[in-house]
Every structure is written in C-alpha cells, then in structure tokens.
C-alpha cells in the first residue's frame, strides 16, 4: 500500500500541473504567449504516476506535450513558466519554448517535438546509464500517434538486443490531432504481439488512478533492471477538453464519438484519484482543502513570475 501522504502528494502535483496549464491557456488566449502550446490537461496522472516511482538518476525524456512530465519529475516551476513565455530566465533561456522542457538537475533530460524521435534518444540515454553501471533506467514518454513511427519499433528491438534499461511509456489519448486509432491502425493491430514479439515486456492499463500507475511503474522498473530488458507501459489516458493544441476548449467536437463531455468528466484522473482517496478513508474536507490550497499556491506562484515578465517586445 502506498501511504496516504504519498497519495496526497500525487494528487497535489496533478492539481498543480492543471492549475498552471489553465493559467497559461488563459494568457495564450490574450495573445501574451508566443510559443506552440500543447496542454496535458486530463493526462496528468500518467506523468505524475510514472515519475513518482522514479529516482532523480532515472532519466526522463518527453515530447511536444510535456509540461506534466517535466513538473512531475520535479522540474523547476518558475523556469517552466518563464520558458513558455520566451523569457531568458526559462529552462532553455527562451530558445526552446513550450515544446522543449529541460531540467537536468532532476533527471528531466529534455523533450523534443519531432514524433518518435525520443524513442532512439531514450535508448541511447538508457545505454549511457547502463555504461555507467548505475541501477537506474531511462524513461521516454511517447504518444499513441508517435508510437506509429518505425523508429519506435526499431528502438524496442535495439534496446532488447543490447539489454538497455529503458521504459517506453505510451501515453494513449486515442488521438493523433483528430485522427482516431481506427483511422490509423488495422483492425487486428496488436500491441502486445508486436512489442512482446520484439523482446520487450508489455503492460497496458487505465491511467485514471495515479496510485496504480505509480505502483505499476515501480514494478516495471524493478523488472527492467532484474531481467535486463526494456519494457513498454501503455497508459490509456483521457484527452481533456482542450483538444490537440492551443488554448481553445473544444465544444463537442465531431471526432470524439465515444468520449462525450460527460465521459471526459467522469473519467478525469484528478476526480478519480481524489474519490479513491476519500473511499480509502481520508476525510473529504482534507482532500478539498489540499486541492484548494494547491490551486491558490500555484496561482500566487504563477502571478509572481508572470508579473516579472515583459510580454511582447
């Protein structure tokens, strides 16, 4: 069992990520931000769950949509906000913008938006960990779309061949922009057959419960190190109401046939993780207070930074 305190921390982290992204979305609307923007809202549990099972020396890479991965790994909050605004105090000094998160001090070793590119990179990062004889792993987050690039499959094979300690996390929100799985994959497409056939371990689960993701990641990390083979953790997440990119909320988009607004709300990872805490005996007031405090703190922190940024040149 994970301790209540641990679970509360995970919830708080997810709430922080959502709160800051909502503030960013708001400012983007007002044309104050000049970076591409891909929000992770709705998908916080995969990042927070996975990263909570890692140590600083486990090295993580993300993709075009990585605010949550970065913050979950412990990336510096202020530097992320500065970066999104293109300020020289940002984690990449404004050169990268939202799609290039980096905080090497906590083992978040970068994010790059060219789809699939992180699979080989993560394999190399895992190789370097192995060469240094550390008991750590590399972790790469890859979308279900990006996981269609050949480089992903080649990397699994390569990592399996060379016993590289790497965990590929497929963050599956069902869509690549607005193309659904059925638009992109044959009817008989089988992840387990492919991935296990290439020599990696494969596990698929719903990511709504952040604690379950944390436990599974811990187990898979142990196995990667014990069995000396790579693994794929396939997390089903729910894309929030913001859509693929930008700050606009989607109003009943035609491409989302099954996940209606009601479905999105009922399966929201923060709601689900919160309800589970309460079911497990934590007083509802305590949980609500934690959420309210986190939002308030995040807003204060955000505004403090935001007020120091000169927007538009």
């Amino acid at each position: 069992m994970l301790s209540t305190e641990f679970s509360m921390n995970l919830l708080s982290k997810m709430v922080q990520i959502r709160a800051v992204e909502e503030l960013i979305a708001d400012d983007f609307f007002k044309s104050k931000i000049f970076s591409f923007l891909h929000l992770s809202i709705g998908q916080e549990s995969s990042a927070v769950g996975v990263c909570s099972a890692l140590e600083t020396d486990d090295l993580v890479m993300g993709n075009h949509r990585s605010h949550h991965h970065y913050l979950a790994k412990g990336g510096d909050f202020d530097k992320m906000v500065y970066e999104v605004y293109g300020d020289s105090r940002g984690c990449c000094k404004g050169y990268g913008g939202s799609m290039h998160m980096l905080d090497r001090s906590v083992g978040f070793v970068g994010s790059t938006p060219i789809l699939g590119s992180v699979a080989p990179l993560g394999t190399g990062i895992g190789f370097s960990i192995k060469a240094s004889k550390k008991n750590n792993i590399a972790v790469v987050f890859i979308g279900d779309g990006a996981a269609e690039e050949g480089a992903f499959y080649e990397s699994i094979n390569l990592a399996a061949l060379m016993n590289v300690p790497v965990l590929f996390v497929i963050e599956d929100n069902k869509y690549s922009v607005i193309s659904a799985h059925s638009d992109r994959k044959a009817k008989d497409y089988s992840y387990p057959k492919i991935i296990e056939g290439l020599g990696a371990t494969y596990h698929r689960m719903e990511a709504r419960d952040v604690n379950a993701v944390s436990k599974q990641t811990k187990l898979m990390k142990e196995n990667i190190l014990a069995d000396r083979k790579p693994a794929v953790l396939h997390l089903d997440v729910v894309r929030g109401t913001y859509g693929h990119s930008g700050p606009m909320k989607e109003k009943a988009p035609g491409y989302r046939v099954n996940d209606t607004p009601e479905f999105i709300e009922a399966n929201d990872c923060i709601t689900v993780s919160k309800d589970l805490l309460i079911q497990n005996g934590v007083e509802p007031e305590k949980v609500e207070a934690l959420i309210a405090n986190t939002i308030k703190e995040t807003e204060e922190k955000f505004l403090n930074i935001r007020n120091q940024i000169k927007v538009r040149i």
């Binding site: 293109g86 020289s88 990268g96 913008g97």
Partner: peptide
C-alpha cells in the same frame, strides 16, 4: 531560429 520572439528579433 529560436522560439522566443525576443530572441528571433
């Protein structure tokens, strides 16, 4: 080409 308009200049 960098991302921030301030750097793109």
């Amino acid at each position: 080409c960098p991302t921030s308009p301030a750097l793109v200049g």
